[in-house]
């Protein structure tokens, strides 16, 4: 019996020393999709920074607005200059916490992430459904949700209101790796 306890303690200590405090990705993906009667608009950003603190399940994401790549150069120009005004607001951020972070295992399961999303200088509290899995050397998070442009003070001129959806679908995929200094 004593041996078993010793074994458990050893295993516990071993896992403790191996455990990484922070997992991070510097090339996370965020895409958004706007569906409207006139045209569909899609953009992809492969340079998203996302950090997960394993002790608390806290999550911090930084997004460069100019890193969103569009199919058409004109769309990208309008997006940056007229809608998100990326010269004034170069970044979007999310700060929050993965709920029930301790329950995430190596098998993919549904979880929720709650926190504050800041785009275009406006902050809104959101709760996102996500798929998550965790192993010793990766924390993978993915999912999609809708944002309302009006919540972030992004105005769409009436001339193009048939070209751009009011609610934009945002998809994300982050493959966090242990952070080595």
């Amino acid at each position: 019996m004593k041996n078993i306890y010793t074994l458990f303690i050893c295993l516990f200590l071993a896992s403790f020393t191996n455990a990484q405090d922070k997992f991070l990705t510097k090339n996370g993906t965020i895409t958004f999709f706007s569906k409207s009667p006139m045209e569909n608009i899609e953009a992809e950003n492969n340079q998203v920074l996302s950090i997960v603190a394993t002790k608390t399940g806290q999550m911090a994401i930084s997004i460069l607005m100019k890193s969103f790549m569009f199919e058409k150069a004109l769309m990208q120009e309008h997006f940056n200059e007229n809608y998100v005004e990326s010269d004034t607001y170069p970044k979007a951020t999310f700060k929050g916490r993965i709920l029930s972070f301790d329950k995430i295992t190596a098998t993919e399961s549904a979880t929720k992430v709650k926190g504050e999303l800041t785009i275009h200088g406006k902050t809104k509290e959101i709760v996102i459904e996500a798929q998550a899995k965790r192993t010793d050397d990766a924390i993978v998070m993915s999912g999609s949700f809708f944002i309302d442009l009006a919540d972030f003070g992004i105005e769409i001129p009436s001339v193009v209101k048939n070209n751009i959806a009011k609610k934009i679908e945002v998809s994300f995929n982050f493959d966090h790796k242990p952070y080595k200094k």
Binding site: L64, K66, S67, P90, K91
Partner: peptide
């Protein structure tokens, strides 16, 4: 150059 997070990003 699209900006700076922890690193400078070029696309």
């Amino acid at each position: 150059c699209t900006g700076f997070l922890m690193d400078v990003i070029l696309v």
